[in-house]
């Protein structure tokens, strides 16, 4: 036996001893439960972790959403059935949040919807353009990739703070504008600019990650397709539409789904940047849930739980829609 084999045998000896010790019990279980039972046994550790960290919290969240009061412990909280959901959903006109009983919730819903549409659209477009540029033969290509990826490494709170310092009334942006002879803008106190800043900062912070996914997709496209197109004299725009875009679709789908989920969950950067203001112009669903459940002097964990269940429902629907479209596309 070679030295390597002897070292390998010594290293795996404890495992083999363990397997030998378990073997009779495993055989017994297989005889008793069959093949299906063995699969169940091997899945058990993962299922246990999934149950403890996912299913039980979901169950607790549903239970909390059916209780009232400000107490933290579930056992101390009175059962109120669907009252929290009724409070959230009670509305004269859902398109006009101020007509709703909980107007802040519906304001947050519509703000989040607008944010998702704008941010995901901009993010996907900007990530695609960035990936296309980074895929070309540029000087110092590695440096430029690092430049675009760097913000992804920053903590969202740091991102929010940096941009707050830049955009506040006496911040860097206004200093530059005044030096350039322009009128300063109160970016974070103006409804339009504050919302634009929330979208823009979010795109800036995450662009590198999505660009990297698309860049990987671009580099996986066989070069000979481009060579053939070049030999045929195909124009660049047609090459992009007929070769690049179709072959990049799986990566684009991943980018859209991930960006969509992340956009619906927007909280940290926006919260640090604008605090939800001006007024409620940048109050998003996750901030509503956080403030209702934890930060407000009038805490209502039941209402926060109900809002988070509704938000989870929207995310599930969006994901299922996306998956079914993907499945249909794959079948075609």
């Amino acid at each position: 036996m070679s030295l390597g084999a002897r070292v390998g045998a010594a290293a795996t000896a404890p495992l083999r001893a363990l397997a030998a010790a378990l073997d009779p019990a495993m055989r017994g279980w297989q005889r008793l439960a069959g093949r299906g039972g063995m699969i169940g046994l091997f899945l058990l550790p993962n299922l246990a972790i999934f149950t403890i960290f996912v299913l039980v919290p979901i169950g607790l969240n549903v239970a909390y959403s059916m209780t009232g009061g400000a107490q933290v412990f579930l056992a101390d909280r009175p059962f109120v059935g669907g009252e929290q959901y009724a409070r959230l959903l009670e509305c004269e006109n859902h398109l006009r949040p101020r007509t709703c009983r909980d107007d802040t919730f519906w304001t947050a819903v519509w703000n989040t919807a607008r944010f998702v549409v704008l941010q995901v659209g901009l993010m996907t477009g900007a990530a695609l353009v960035t990936a296309l540029i980074l895929n070309r033969s540029l000087p110092a290509k590695g440096f430029w990739r690092a430049v675009f990826f760097f913000p992804v490494l920053l903590s969202p709170v740091v991102v929010g703070l940096i941009w707050r310092w830049i955009l506040q009334r006496q911040g860097l942006a206004n200093l530059v504008m005044v030096e350039g002879g322009l009128e300063p803008v109160n970016w974070l106190v103006d409804r339009f600019w504050a919302f634009a800043a929330a979208v823009g900062v979010s795109v800036w912070a995450h662009l590198g990650f999505y660009a990297l996914i698309l860049l990987a997709g671009l580099q996986a496209i066989p070069k000979d397709l481009y060579e053939a197109a070049e030999m045929d004299g195909t124009r660049p725009w047609r090459v992009f539409r007929r070769i690049t875009l179709p072959l990049l679709t799986p990566n684009l789908a991943v980018v859209v789904v991930l960006a969509l989920i992340r956009a619906v969950q927007i909280f940290d950067e926006a919260y640090v940047l604008t605090g939800g203001g001006p007024g409620t112009a940048t109050m998003f669903l996750t901030q509503y849930i956080y403030e209702t459940g934890f930060a407000s002097p009038v805490r209502n964990p039941g209402l926060a739980a109900a809002a988070s269940i509704l938000m989870a429902g929207v995310l599930v629907v969006l994901t299922l829609l996306r998956l079914s479209r993907q499945r249909r596309a794959a079948q075609r």
């Binding site: 802040t104 106190v189 605090g275 203001g277 001006p278 007024g279 409620t280 109050m283 901030q287 403030e291």
Partner: peptide, 22 residues
Amino acid sequence: LRDVWVSAAGATYRPAADEFIN
């Protein structure tokens, strides 16, 4: 000063001391 009251949502506390100090 609009900034102090408008630059946050909900019941968030915002001191205005820096505005006076500056």
